[in-house]
Design a protein around this nucleic acid. Structure first.
Lengths: 356, 356
DNA sequence: CTGAAAGCGCTTACAG
DNA sequence: CTGAAAGCGCTTACAG
């Protein structure tokens, strides 16, 4: 409040140089003599001066801030993604303004708030924006990158993992290993992530001329996976032996819930009686009690390329649009019977030998 | 690049009013006629104008941005905290610049980067800053609030949960329920959170004239809890029956690791053979397979008061310093034998009846 | 209620 | 290399 700020003019006076010289001292590559720079820094130190990034942003038309719109930080898939974005942007000298916005329509309402601050670019994770909004950002010259969402024909970059392909592979794995009664536990049905995983799984089952999978609806949460499993394994099916012998869960949290239901509540053996595969390779999958076989999205790579691309576009708006689609990796643990030949990239996560 | 921005002058021309009028139209409570405002908004709409928050920040000396420094978003305790901060600040019309910084010394190096952007205030979670840095922020007039960290005699606000008190209560619970061989699995030993939990637990055991707890060092992670449990329950102790019968874990993740080690690897019964209590009440504690008895910090309340206080201080720098210390709540689930009389606030989390 | 004008704290041609 | 000056896009007294 009213506290007088130390400005470059104050430093200039103290150092006996011009205000421009002060500015140059803080501009990498500007033409200043070492001597002037030293005087400036000494004076700055003495006065407790630091350049004002807001003023710099205004005149230079570069804020060195990016907007990051995230869907749901509480879902364990996102914290690592957030951390990676923070780290990658920091390395590029960009600060991040964070926004939490729900689904697609929210994003359209949110974007003006982030544009207001003249961010150099915006990354949107797991949501889309309307084509009107995309056009508006484009007119402003603010680049957008979609993470985990793809919009055909829009002038926005995107980097995704190939959910359809991964889900198709899971169908193949289950079928080839001899499972006969497949099931699917869905995420929120209106999300594109769920739609892609479901479509990939079902379409491949159909291509292989197998009976369509049973399905129960979840909402990505642990509890919904637990409940969905209970719906899939009714008392009737249990007694007839006609219960699912392979369950693909649209994410890990639901996979863990299903696992707990199947083992603790239903007293079935995994993977002997039923195989379970999840998606994301969240930390808890590797816990000794679960060891859930799952799909890992190459998050490091995806974030790195999203950031790299964003920076490149900030520096060159004419750069061509990218639409990266990364392949996932099967993480083999203990919850699924798998065929001899695994038809997708995979690694085995050995049971850690931690006896000491 | 170089795309001409639409400014308030363009809108003024289009609307046939002065530039000041445009500015006033966007200032709540400013004196403009409805008619002028309508003309302005119509022109703005037509041109795709939106006020430039950076320019506004510069002249008004209010950025409506706060800096949020978080320690470790990957630890499941933090995502909910982050979400709460985002939501509360948004309600107050504040945007947040996020920074991820490790331990205390990092924060001192980070702060200049956040101050550069003229944030209206800074919240630091689970780290401290040096008194020099505190003094510098104070000189700049930028308020600091510490979340989960307390600095006596510094001119910074803080809101914490009372870790010492909660840990003392756990000692009481164990002892009163008749446990004889207590143990403690620590978090990273140099963090104040661990120090407080450890101190509270040990000091109360001492006051009650019980044998000092055994201790194994962890680092907050699941795996470290698993490993620590194995160190506590050696083959020798197992065969002599002299293994711990009550383990207090400095956080839930380690508690779950310990639980898996104790039950799956050691084949001991919980809580019959050994009681386990964690800390934080992270989501996975309530999973059917774990149902970990733990301590819940009143995070909603803490974040709300941190934000409320920050806003109050931004508006009145002379406001008195607060140092809130919130009491925690015991969440009773299935992993600990508890006395008849529970000596601290608690709630029972009933096993959800989800059979359908 | 309205407009002209000063000024927030910088960067960046421009001229020397 | 250096300084004087213009200007980024706003808000806010000030005068009417």
């Amino acid at each position: 409040m009213g506290r007088p700020r130390v400005t470059s003019f104050d430093v200039a006076r103290e150092a006996g140089v011009s205000q421009s010289a002060v500015s140059r001292a803080y501009t990498p590559g500007a033409s200043v003599s070492a001597k002037t720079r030293d005087k400036v820094f000494a004076a700055a130190q003495k006065l407790g001066y630091q350049p004002n990034a807001i003023a710099r942003s205004l005149i230079s038309r570069r804020s060195n801030m990016v907007g990051l719109v995230m869907a749901d930080v509480v879902n364990p898939f996102y914290p690592p993604v957030l951390e990676l974005f923070m780290r990658n942007f920091r390395e590029q000298g960009q600060r991040v303004m964070l926004f939490l916005g729900g689904h697609n329509q929210d994003v359209d309402e949110l974007l003006p708030q982030v544009l207001e601050y003249q961010v150099d670019g915006i990354v949107i994770t797991s949501s889309t924006l309307s084509s009107e909004m995309a056009a508006y950002c484009n007119k402003l010259g603010t680049p957008i990158t979609l993470f985990n969402r793809y919009v055909p024909n829009a002038r926005v970059d995107s980097v995704c993992s190939d959910n359809i392909d991964a889900a198709r592979n899971i169908a193949d794995l289950f079928i080839t290993a001899g499972h006969k009664r497949l099931a699917y536990i869905s995420g929120q049905v209106n999300t594109s992530t769920n739609q892609d995983r479901q479509k990939g799984f079902f379409s491949r089952v159909e291509e292989r001329r197998q009976p369509m999978p049973a399905m129960a609806e979840g909402d990505w949460s642990y509890q919904s996976g637990f409940d969905a499993a209970l719906k899939l394994f009714t008392a009737e099916k249990l007694s007839s032996g006609e219960y699912p012998d392979a369950v693909f869960c649209a994410n890990d949290l639901m996979g863990l819930g299903a696992l707990d239901a199947i083992r603790c509540k239903l007293n079935l053996r995994v993977p002997d009686d039923v195989s379970v595969i999840g998606f994301d390779d969240t930390d808890s999958c590797s816990w000794h009690n679960y060891r859930l076989t799952t799909i890992r999205t190459p998050v490091e790579k995806m974030v790195a390329s999203a950031v790299e691309n964003m920076i490149a576009r900030i520096n060159n708006p004419e750069k061509e649009i990218i639409a990266a689609l990364e392949q996932s990796l099967l993480i083999v643990r203990d919850t699924a019977r798998l065929p001899e030949q695994i038809s997708m990239p995979f690694i085995k996560d050995p049971k850690p030998d931690t006896a000491g």
